[in-house]
Design a protein around this nucleic acid. Structure first.
Lengths: 356, 356
DNA sequence: TTGAAAGCGCTAACAC
DNA sequence: GTGTTAGCGCTTTCAA
């Protein structure tokens, strides 16, 4: 007569006519040579009959499971974040850490996940701006975002990469560009905008901009008036021969708009993107873009986090240090290089875009 | 003098000069009105000073956390699986279940994850062939795979969709096709191959095939000799005017090969894919493909799983049923429709491919 | 308003 | 070989 509660090892023991610790031995596989064959079989049978499964919580409480770090990303369908996750997971496993994934945009929800699981540390990727260190007392490293406080962070060195993009176009002979920005308010996109602006200014290049949500259709819609000469900014509309996009997805939208308007790429218009997704290689011509090594971002962040945890262990083991010594370089901000990949979508400017 | 072990609520109690249960009250937020302000502050201060964090395992052992289901996918970077995960997660949350992700290809590793966490059920997507029900006693539903035993499964109704593809090409006037298969041995790809073969046979269409790993470069390499007329099969090489691909990624490879050979799409060659990834919309011309609604797959599977769990609960609560009643429709295999999306990459055949 | 005490289900010494 | 026992860190009556 099973009750509403799942069976415990006691129940199994009773049914098998053995003691509870024998059940424990059998289920841990530590029964080799210590528990008789008959007994073992009896235990297993009783367990099956009852549908018994060892309670992992109780086991972990007793024995202490592997340490866990939670990885938070805003969107796992986006392959970039999936790569970050993969990289982080790899690094964690190497060090014997388990990882749990939390797909959340806001800190609140991440904090809830942290409380719910037995989490030892948090790796938070591309969180929305304005996040404080979520919970104190939980070591954390943020990825691709403004480090909230004295916390560690790993980010791309994105500004030089976008400077390279502009420079590349400039050297090809482009003298005016349009910048299609992603309508996302995170640090990385702000940095991209600033870098493009600065690079254009430094080279005396004409510059207009538009912005769009991070999907192809929105980008297409935003690009259409721009390419058709409807740009409204301080610069004369139409006075650009290249579009610099904040993301490859936006670049695809520009391809579509250009196609709709009968503008050839790269003959009539050069286009660049950021974040070397498969998209960049799939389109024709292949897209000149900036490679953002997501896996490496995840790996590097996880390694920092693990190092921090292990330092904390040592500290405790070795007795207390003076306060000033704590946190050594925990607040440091590592920058990962982002590399420009030149492909077929950029070329010397042909005829400037006709105003329509 | 902190030891190597993390502080417990007892430590906090001692430092704050209160009892352990008071600490517990404060940390559960159940202190409102029951614990004095001064006491509360003292507890919080002591906790901060010690770096105390409640032990989630102990808490769950006592109070029983939300139930968890583990979702296993072979590759989270593949957006299809990411969508499956997302759909499953959504459905789980609606019912108050937590989800944990396990990225593994083989059953062994999944089983390890199941044992490590307190998992109540498993949703396994696209596992390699030959998997038995991983652990008995853990309810499981498999997605997009041969149901191992009497277990539930949810899969796409892929055969009719590929029949539609062939039929579509046939109606356009194509009389011979090449089938570019994915070099992956799972049930879904076997079904695709069989469906294409059968559909061609039924219509008396010429058919050759090749196979390739699931990436663009491999597909391109595989498509090149095929398009150049080097196909080796029972059918005369070159006697096709369309390529049916097992996956959109493969189709992109075919685009590249066609481009390299100066073959226009769809003028000189029609191409189709499967699995409506962003890729299909990004390429030019847009790819005729079969939409595989991954989110729906995940949602449906999770709903089945949750229903099964809740049925089990009821059963236990209401006393034991006779054995024959168990499992009602647990072994049923649901099929989700997969829809053909016709886009620009298919058209009536122009000149047949020249043999080179 | 706070404290004492009894477990949650399991593991790991240690006894028999 | 198998059983006894004492906790793991927390929640939760029940007293004070």
């Amino acid at each position: 007569m099973p009750t509403g509660k799942p069976p415990t090892s006691h129940d199994v023991a009773r049914l098998a006519g053995v003691s509870q610790s024998t059940v424990s031995l059998v289920f841990r596989g530590a029964a080799g040579g210590r528990v008789g064959q008959r007994t073992q079989r009896a235990v297993l049978d009783a367990a099956r009959q009852l549908g018994f499964r060892p309670n992992a919580d109780a086991r972990r409480l007793r024995v202490g499971g592997p340490r866990m770090v939670l990885i938070a990303v805003p969107d796992i369908v986006n392959p970039f974040f999936a790569r970050v996750f993969t990289g982080a997971r790899t690094a964690a496993r190497e060090r014997g850490f388990q990882v749990v994934l939390s797909v959340q945009r806001d800190l609140e929800s991440v904090a809830a996940d942290v409380a719910g699981q037995q989490v030892d540390a948090v790796l938070a990727c591309s969180l929305d701006d304005g996040g404080r260190p979520l919970d104190d007392a939980v070591p954390a490293v943020v990825l691709d975002a403004e480090p909230p406080e004295g916390q560690g962070s790993v980010r791309f060195d994105i500004a030089p990469a976008l400077t390279d993009v502009v420079d590349h176009l400039h050297r090809l002979g482009h003298r005016g560009i349009a910048h299609l920005r992603a309508d996302v308010r995170t640090a990385t996109f702000r940095e991209r905008a600033e870098a493009v602006d600065a690079a254009c200014a430094a080279r005396g290049m004409n510059r207009v901009h538009a912005s769009s949500a991070l999907d192809v259709d929105a980008a297409r819609a935003a690009a259409l008036p721009l390419l058709a000469g409807g740009g409204s900014g301080p610069c004369a509309p139409g006075a650009f021969t290249a579009v610099v996009c904040d993301d490859d997805v936006l670049a695809v939208g520009v391809y579509k708009a250009a196609q709709a308007l009968g503008i050839a790429i790269p003959g009539g218009l050069s286009v660049t993107g950021v974040d070397d997704v498969d998209l960049a290689m799939a389109v024709t011509p292949e897209l000149t873009t900036v490679d953002l090594p997501g896996e490496e971002l995840g790996e590097t962040g996880m390694r920092r986090l693990v190092a921090e945890l292990e330092r904390a262990d040592d500290e405790q083991a070795g007795g207390e240090r003076v306060g000033a010594d704590r946190g050594s370089d925990a607040g440091a901000c590592v920058r990962l290089p982002a590399q420009l990949l030149i492909r077929g979508s950029t070329a010397r400017p042909g005829t400037p875009l006709p105003l329509r």
